[in-house]
Design a protein around this nucleic acid. Sequence first.
DNA 1: CACATGTGCAA
DNA 2: TATTGCACATGTG
Length: 952
Amino acid sequence: MSEQKRLFLVDAYALIFRGYYAFIKNPRINSKGLDTSAIMGFMNSLLDVIKRERPDHLAVCFDKGGSVDRVEMFSEYKANRDATPEAIKIAVPYICEILKAMHIPIMVKEGYEADDVIGTLAKKAEIEGYKTFMVTPDKDFAQLVSDNIFMYRPVFGGGYETWGIPEVQKKFEVERPEQVIDFLGMMGDSSDNIPGLPGVGEKTAKKFLAAYGSMENLLANTHELKGKMREKVEASKELGMLSKQLATIMLDVPVEFDEKDFEMSEPDIEAVTHLFQELEFRRLIDNFLKTFTSEDTAASNELSDASKADNTPKTTAKEQISAGSGQFSLFGGEPSSVSKLETVSEYTRKTAETSSHFYQSVASGMATKLFIKNLMNQTSVCFDTETTGLNPLTAELVGIAFSWEVGKGFYLPFPENKDAAQELIEQLRSFFEAEHIEKIGQNLKYDIKVLRKYNIKVKGKLFDTMLAHYLINPDMRHNMDVLAETYLNYTPISITELIGKKGKNQLSMRDVPLEKQTEYAVEDTDITLQLKEHFTKELSEANTQKLFDEIEIPLLRVLADMELEGINLDTEFLNSLSVELNNDIANLEKKIYEAAGEEFNIASPKQMGIILFEKLKLIDKPKKTKTGQYATGEDILSYLAKDHEIIRNILDYRGLAKLKSTYVDALPLQVEPSTGRVHTDYMQTVAATGRLSSNNPNLQNIPIRTERGRQVRKAFIPRNEDYTLLAADYSQIELRIIAALSEEENMIQAFNNGEDIHASTASKVFNVPLNEVTREQRSNAKTVNFGIIYGVSAFGLSNQTDLSRTEAKELIDTYYTTYPKLRNYISKQIDFARDHGYVQTVLGRRRYLKDINSRNAVVRGAAERNAINAPIQGSAADIIKIAMINIHNKLVTNNYKTKMLLQVHDELVFDVYKPELETIKTLVKTEMEKAFKLKVPLDVDLDVGDNWLEAH
DNA sequence: CACATGTGCAA
DNA sequence: TATTGCACATGTG
């Protein structure tokens, strides 16, 4: 390399946005409630660039006031952008201050975009003999690439790629980088709202460029094009030229390139550290100090690259096992041993600091029996099963990892031979079934289900880190990688690193070399063990220990049983339903095509919108979705249904197509061949309110409201003729909870009297005797009752009913006059949330509401609705969870043949052994009604039938 | 093949 | 401009 001077120009907003969205699932919020995601993301990238490249000249470029020229050319330019997120607006002043303290120049010119500033500076620097690197992910910059100007582009998953002329040529299939402008002009750019040529996407644009070289040349030769494409392009010549102009980065921004202004100099370390401290960026301080004080960073880069190369010969687990099955391998050993262990030794050092346990080497090749003897002496052990797949019904054990001391662990590989594997697991039976040994794990439901297939029941106290974290902060994600990063500041080996992305080439865990299996599996148990320490403390600080030990942990075993049990499905019935639907759908399709005058894809909202609103012009001012398409949702179309047969047919078509694809055809495919039943997976840590969710398949949204839809329920049947289905559901549990918590006497009375609550509400609100309430009145009252639970507005209510906005508002006012304490309760909840930052359920399940004091009314409003809804929905979830645990206990201890199969938020479904029916009916009703004592009685309806529809 | 979008099913 | 979810088909990269 020459000694050519190097200038780095950073596209600030691009990196800020990128940083912000990188944290979107788990925003970084500091103790003052400030969302620091954008600042942290940006600073991480900036330091990363400095550390890697050691630029001698550097500047950060911002936009200010948007591009005056482009908006003048095209008023819609960037008009489709969502409002900048609050966290980013807040971030900018902080970032500027940090840059000042770092003595890094900030370049900004009112009325110009950063692109233009960067472009102009890069060209000027080129004249001065610089090599310029434009630090941005934005591909538009490719147009500026030359022999001396490069893109330095962060890539997903870390690292950077440098785009010079060859890269741009390859990427865009152009000869010269300037042609990128033509390329963008032709295909448009939806993020900047550059229109482009209609019907031209990436593929066509590349084709045109290869043939014509430029937009101008294409437009001059449109006669060579064919058919529809010719028409469209010829009609859009102006649009094409405009698009090209919009995509062109300007090179005449009035800024000077004075090289000494751009020279890197020593940062004001104290000022930067102070700012980082204020923002609570502990890791960044370390990172910053390392970047600016360490002598040789290039060396460490080489090391990290070099460590990626893995030249160790691969020994597969299979080979190891055949060499001596039943041996376990060790995680650990002296760090001096092999270079490959470098990452491991570093990791152990880190944990050693906080745990006082140091890395220990243990003799390898210890006999399994000796290991188990050791295991049985522990009081608390973390374990994790490694298996051949994700389906616990078919997954085979590949190995099990164990840890009981931080920084140490063991891995026991399993033989592929089934008898041999069973023999090995038998040796561990005493451990898993030991009541006195606490078992720790991450997502134990999975491990418990896998082991159950080997006829092993996991007994003793449990601690599940995923469940613990769910109670600590239900709104976050709870996978182990995130938890390790958040709480231990450590990035574990990812499963993708081990077995690759899913697809044809994905490996099975069995194909991973034993050494890697060990490292990965034991790392997980080690981390889980450490997380437990954290979470135990946090659970007790939040007063949720009891909820954890008495609800979520016991429920985990209940759910494991329900999932393993599965439910019987009448697939023949569904298949015949599918044939019927097919006929009806085909008939509707024909009618719709006739009315539309052409064939199109009815399932495509895009095509449908164009047909309805451009071709048939059914409305003057069609509503559009946020992406600019016509909205064709049910709520919109149903207004038009009475005037247009095509709309009625479309609505019918959609209903039937949905039914067929989502339920009738999909469910039979979900029958597990090994059991002949459908096994859903209940997610215990997904819903922020404490509810369960159901997946693969979702059995919590089986249709019931329409006649056609509810037929699907006929397919859910008892296991055989000796059994019948029992459905038990809480009547109005959420309204009972809000009545009880608010102590609203008028509503409590109605429940005490066993009245129909919606009719009762209607009678009070519309001031008519109970027996004279009309259907419409009851229906409106019902809507308000539900609306209250969700935090309704007059607008929302009028949307859901036939009422006008004014009428809706009046109704809400009268409602609150009728139930005055309800309004009180609502404001008390909001106040509580403002003061404490969270709300809670009857069992103390918390939901944190960081936006409750936001200055943005929309954001705050959403938080306020959550403050009302979360305790209600969550308390209902708490209550049914108690009932499930108690019912399950009784079913098991009394050896009933009856099994609990499904939970649908306020309903439980059982496969009842007919001779037990009367006993079970009483048992279920009693346990559900006494699960939690409120100031309002709980009421449970029971129904029995030979399928799920009859049981309603 | 992965992801976003629009739509629609349940409590 | 109503809460919590999951999943389908289409369209795009």
